[in-house]
Design a protein around this nucleic acid. Structure first.
Length: 489
RNA sequence: GGGCUGGUAGCUCAGAGGUAGAGCAGCGGUCUUUUAAACCGAUGGUCGUGGGUUCGAUCCCCACCCGGCCCA
């Protein structure tokens, strides 16, 4: 490892510490109080003259004024000033603090509590020790680390210097635990299903492919967990859910990361209407738990999870915005002809369902800011959803949309094995025709359905996008600790 | 994949065809109540990478690498 000048300076300090017989990386600390606990009980501890030992990272600048010195140390619970005087700390450690310790070193400091003339609570240090010498220098004192690429490549440094980033991930954890509790309380059983799948299914996406050496078998990283959870519904569990990483071999942008976290749940003897109620309750609960209110602020807009969600039918909304009735134009050619005639600015897609999706994505979805259920998807786009009895071209499906962003997907699950087989065959034809996101035939899943699956409602929720909403982050990278980046060089 | 845009000291950023700049941090000093401490001094750079044009390129041109925003 080649060290730059600043790193070499710090290394020289480390060597001086070692030469003085000091272990710069001791195995443990004698910490008696967290900094938060010291601050919370400061006046009582000060009056009792109690000696405390705190531990943490030196942050900000050290200020050495001849025979006095000040610095701040931080642990996860807070930060506090340490106050050193040559007289009380002694020459050896006072000089050591001045000469061999640096910002970012992790130290322990023992002493009594005092306030400075300006009233700042401080530990008046009579003994200190090194817990971990930092060989890397800190970023700039005021602007900190702001380069987005560097923040993500060195997330550990980002977390050290940008406390609001830590808060995002605390909120993320709270959302996940709240969601778990919400589902547990409603009788959903948390399960684990394979990450390595011999057949990928449950969504329309390209997979990552890997290989099992001993079995000489290609395997896919899951793109969804749907088909496994529905097998469990067949098996007699009536309510199941899984919180899982899924992997989709697609581009990276503001709302996509190749691996992301999804919650999927399935409820037997329920349908998509029940799932809508579940979503409404879930987001109201999340808002109350996380934001303390049914309303949240996202990118300058107020979003209200209090009322029932708006419902928007895809065919109706497209007709309203573009004048095109997709239920009349049920073939690709006439639909595209109408798009051309109307002068709409959308891309042409190779299949009718995808063309409908494109129309909706461009003309309707961006305007759906308040919580909305998008309904009535074409059957061609929904090979695992049950058809509407009154309109077989459409399925009983909805996508929850907030701030113009799809945050999930749900339907009344298709439980007719014969129809499911036809849908798989249709997907296979689409794949052969060049749709590389088409779904795979899963004979074992059909076999499960042939034992009978009760009428079932299913739901998937994108955790990352949900966290974006509740942390007011416009980019998915900001809610993933280590977002995907290409290697440098 | 396309358009626009960025990469200069550890960090945050200026700059311009002719020896590379600032602030902060760091280094050497002075200083026993600092709060972005102050003051004095000296450092610190393959200007993303590789080619090309030029007497001379960090700057202009080309390609590539890594980001960002927008579009697909």
């Amino acid at each position: 490892m080649e060290l730059n000048e600043l790193q070499q300076q710090r290394l020289a300090k480390l060597e001086r510490l070692r030469a003085a017989g000091i272990d710069a990386y001791p195995p443990r600390t004698q910490r008696t109080h967290t900094i938060g606990a010291v601050l919370a009980g400061f006046d009582q501890l000060m009056e009792r003259g109690e000696k405390v030992t705190v531990a943490g990272r030196i942050i900000g600048a050290r200020r050495v004024l001849g025979k006095l010195a000040f610095a701040h140390i931080a642990d996860e619970s807070g930060q506090i000033q340490i106050w050193l005087s040559r007289g009380d700390l002694g020459d050896e450690w006072f000089d050591r603090f001045r000469d061999d310790l640096d910002t970012f070193d992790i130290v322990e400091a023992s002493g009594t509590l005092r306030r400075t003339q300006r009233g700042e609570p401080s530990v008046f240090v009579t003994h200190m020790g090194v817990l971990a010498k930092s060989l890397n220098p800190p970023p700039e004192k005021w602007h900190g680390l702001s380069d987005i690429e560097e923040r993500h490549r060195q997330r550990y440094l980002d977390l050290i210097v940008n406390p609001e980033v830590r808060d995002v991930f605390r909120t993320r954890a709270k959302i996940i635990s709240t969601m778990r509790r919400f589902l547990d309380e409603r009788g959903f059983l948390e399960v684990e299903t394979p990450t390595l799948q011999p057949i990928y299914g449950g969504a329309s996406a390209r997979p990552f492919i890997t290989h099992h050496n001993q079995l000489k078998q290609d395997l896919y990283l899951r793109i969804a967990v749907e088909l496994y959870l529905k097998r469990l519904i067949v098996g007699g569990f009536e309510r199941v859910y899984e919180m899982s990483k899924v992997f989709r071999n697609e581009g990276v942008d503001r709302t996509h990361n190749p691996e992301f976290t999804m919650m999927e749940c399935y409820q037997a003897y329920a349908d998509y209407n029940d799932m809508m109620r579940l979503v409404e309750e879930l987001y109201r609960t999340l808002a109350l738990e996380v934001a303390g209110s049914a309303t949240i602020e996202f990118q300058g807009r107020t979003i209200d999870f209090g009322p029932a969600w708006r419902r928007v039918s895809i065919p109706e909304a497209i007709a309203e915005r573009t004048g095109i009735d997709i239920l009349e134009l049920t073939e690709l050619e006439p639909l595209q002809e109408a798009i051309r005639a109307a002068g709409l600015k959308v891309d042409f897609k190779p299949a009718w369902g995808r063309q409908v999706d494109e129309l909706f994505s461009v003309y309707v979805q961006p305007e759906l800011i308040q919580p909305t259920f998008v309904l009535d998807h074409p059957v061609a786009l929904s090979p695992l959803a049950k058809r509407r009895p009154d309109q077989p071209l459409l399925v009983e499906r909805f996508e929850p949309v907030v701030a113009g962003m799809e945050i999930g997907n749900a339907f009344t699950e298709l439980n007719d094995p014969l129809d499911q087989e036809q849908r798989f065959l249709e997907q296979g034809r689409a794949y052969d025709a060049g749709d590389d996101e088409a779904q795979q035939m899963d004979v074992d899943f059909l076999n499960a359905l042939m034992y009978g699956m009760p009428p079932t409602g299913g739901l998937g929720i994108g955790i990352d996008r949900t966290v974006m909403l509740f942390t007011d982050q416009p980019n998915i990278r900001e809610v993933i600790l280590f977002p995907h980046l290409r290697p440098r060089e």
